[in-house]
Design a protein around this nucleic acid. Structure first.
Length: 614
DNA sequence: GCAAGGTC
């Protein structure tokens, strides 16, 4: 009996083959260059020793699109909410598809080894359909779905022995998302492109996407807040005292007031007393926590902050490092390592490095501490970590070198201990007012020795104050300050906002940012050594246009709420609380109404765009 | 020529 196994990507096929075959497998070429077939034997409980072929796809192999007769210009865009949609084999994936059909011919069972997430389940179903094309006798009941979250040996063996069936509710949820994204994206894109055609400086196409627009909305919103900012003056008190020849600056605990006369009145009350009193002095241990294990989104944010790399460039570099075998799979939401994972052996591989080798050695000599555990687990991949050692000098590509160094330092930091120190807080009572001064003394750097991106150093320490002592006020004043504008949007913040609002996934956030750039909705601008993101005239015009139109039920096409609502709905489809058809109808109706309203108000869109044109 | 989601 033969079992055909199919993984979501070649690397998983290879790893799982190694584990299940005990290293004894034979590789065969397939019609698709990157997706080899591996033959071996494995003992499936209840089926005995079976012939196994393990192969792979590269993500989805089908494409959802409108049939050619409903192409651009051939049908009014509004009809795209009801016209039939076609699921075809992606023509770039024809060879992969053919390989599965061929390999299924002499197979009795099909075993799905795609990632255990929503999209993975749907890809599993696409694989099943491809297998059925080659072999009608593989029915849905002949599909085994393995469940694994990482590539540790026993975990994979266990997954091979305890499969379930494909969960069609999860597949339905994905189909629902695909259909909605396509109908909304295609209809609005054609509408916007047609509406704005002929205006000045309009690129083509003017696209709309359920992720593109909320992302653009964040950028425009921030830009407007910066532009409309008006500074305000405020006043506050400050007092310095001196002891043993050392000056300590005390800050007012009441913060600041926008009323100058009020602050002056308070100040005059204080000035009646030449002395203040040290009300309390506390010295307590404090920690600077080591970072959580690394997720994709965090990697992108950090490389943007520390290296000024774009999210896309970071992901591209990480991808190369992954296919080269240097780091683990770079698309993960998981921020806790599986308990069974042997982290020390990974630390061991880094001991030979000239920069952090010594640090890694110290971890193995007793400094190791189990990494912190975050709350996220995508049940597919562990946090990003180094796999093999590589000398930095040997990595030719700048971005890859930076990402590798970051991944290693972050990993070693996770396996180290928190930095330790002491914080001293002194409270000064002067007249009716209370002031505070703090001092920090760092005693152990620990993880900060390797995680050089973060600074935590001793500040000025406080003189040896005694509780209750009376002390002369050496200097004091009413200080004036002014509020500053919010900062312009950075890529780091945009990634964080999208992530927090469920706009896109770890694997696609970078693409969306890239795309709204390619569509000329946003641009990156150098500003004082860093890079900010600002909207273009078209970007502002589109967002302002949409917010000037009154939509039924007050929905917004440029805010994250609709996409968030879709996510909630998809969860309900996954758990069976709602059917795919219900969820789809509800959302399609919602967007269809918004489409009609938009079409009726095209003039508003055009006017808003003109308003922001220079 | 359109989307978002996989991945190379």
């Amino acid at each position: 009996m033969k079992v055909l196994c199919v993984a979501e990507k070649p690397s998983i096929a290879k790893e799982v083959t190694n584990i299940l075959s005990g290293g004894k497998s034979v590789r065969r070429n397939s019609p698709s260059k990157y997706n080899s077939n591996f033959d071996f034997k494995f003992d499936f409980p209840g089926h005995g020793v079976c012939d196994v072929t393990m192969t792979s796809v590269t993500g989805h192999i089908n494409r959802t699109d409108f049939p050619a007769q409903y192409g651009w210009g051939k049908v009014p865009p509004g009809r795209l909410f009801e016209l039939p949609i076609e699921v075809k084999i992606d023509k770039d994936k024809a060879a992969i598809h053919r390989n599965i059909s061929t390999e299924a011919r002499n197979s009795t069972y099909l075993m799905i080894w795609t990632d255990c997430d929503r999209e993975g389940e749907a890809i599993g179903y696409e694989i099943f359909e491809a297998a059925q094309k080659g072999n009608r006798s593989i029915s849905f009941n002949h599909v085994w779905r393995s469940h694994f979250s990482h590539l540790e040996r026993n975990h994979i063996l266990n997954a091979a022995r305890n499969p379930t069936g494909l969960d069609m509710k999860v597949v339905d949820a994905v189909n629902c998302r695909q259909e909605l994204d396509l109908r909304v994206g295609a209809s609005f894109t054609r509408l916007l492109t047609d509406a704005l055609r002929g205006q000045k400086n309009i690129p083509s196409p003017v696209s709309y996407g359920t992720c593109q627009f909320p992302a653009l909305g964040f950028v425009v919103d921030r830009y407007k807040r910066v532009k409309s900012f008006k500074e305000e003056k405020f006043w506050y008190l400050q007092a310095d005292v001196e002891k043993d020849g050392q000056t300590a600056h005390f800050n007012w605990t009441r913060g600041r007031f926008f009323d100058r006369l009020y602050v002056i009145t308070l100040y005059q009350e204080c000035m009646k007393n030449p002395h203040g009193k040290i009300d309390s002095v506390t010295k307590k241990p404090t920690s600077n926590y080591k970072p959580y294990p690394l997720t994709t989104v965090q990697l992108q944010k950090d490389c943007s902050t520390f290296y000024k790399m774009s999210a896309k460039a970071t992901l591209d570099a990480a991808e190369k490092l992954y296919t080269g075998g240097w780091i683990s799979y770079p698309r993960t939401e998981t921020d806790k390592f599986p308990r069974a994972m042997n982290l020390k052996s990974i630390v061991e591989t880094q001991t030979q490095d000239s920069r952090w080798g010594q640090f890694a050695r110290e971890l193995l000599d007793g400094g190791f501490s189990q990494p912190r555990e975050g709350k996220n687990d995508d049940k597919s991949h562990p946090p990003i970590h180094p796999v093999k050692f590589q000398k930095l000098e040997a990595i030719k590509d700048d971005n890859q070198r930076k990402v590798y160094e970051y991944v290693v330092r972050r990993f070693l930091a996770c396996c180290s201990t928190d930095a330790k120190g002491f914080q001293t807080v002194a409270t000064l009572v002067w007249g009716n007012e209370i002031f505070k001064a703090t001092g920090l003394e760092v005693s152990e750097l620990n993880y900060l020795k390797v995680y050089t991106y973060r600074k935590w150093s001793s500040s000025e320490t406080l003189p040896p104050f005694q509780q209750g002592e009376s002390i002369p006020i050496k200097f004091s004043e009413v200080k004036e300050g002014k509020t500053g504008p919010p900062n312009h949007m950075t890529e780091t913040e945009l990634i964080a906002l999208m992530d927090a609002n469920g706009i896109g996934t770890d694997a696609t956030i970078a693409d969306h940012i890239d795309r709204i750039g390619a569509r000329s909705y946003i641009q990156k601008v150098k500003k004082g050594g860093s890079e900010i993101i600002v909207p273009t005239e078209l970007g502002i015009g589109l967002i302002e246009g949409f917010s000037s139109i009154n939509f039924e039920n007050n929905i917004s096409l440029s805010k994250p709420s609709l996409r968030k609502r879709l996510e909630v709905l998809l969860k309900e489809v996954e758990t069976g609380r709602r059917t795919k058809d219900q969820a789809l109808k509800e959302n399609v109706d919602l967007y269809r109404k918004a489409f009609v309203t938009t079409a009726e108000n095209q003039a508003i869109l055009i006017n808003e765009y003109k308003k922001y044109q220079t």
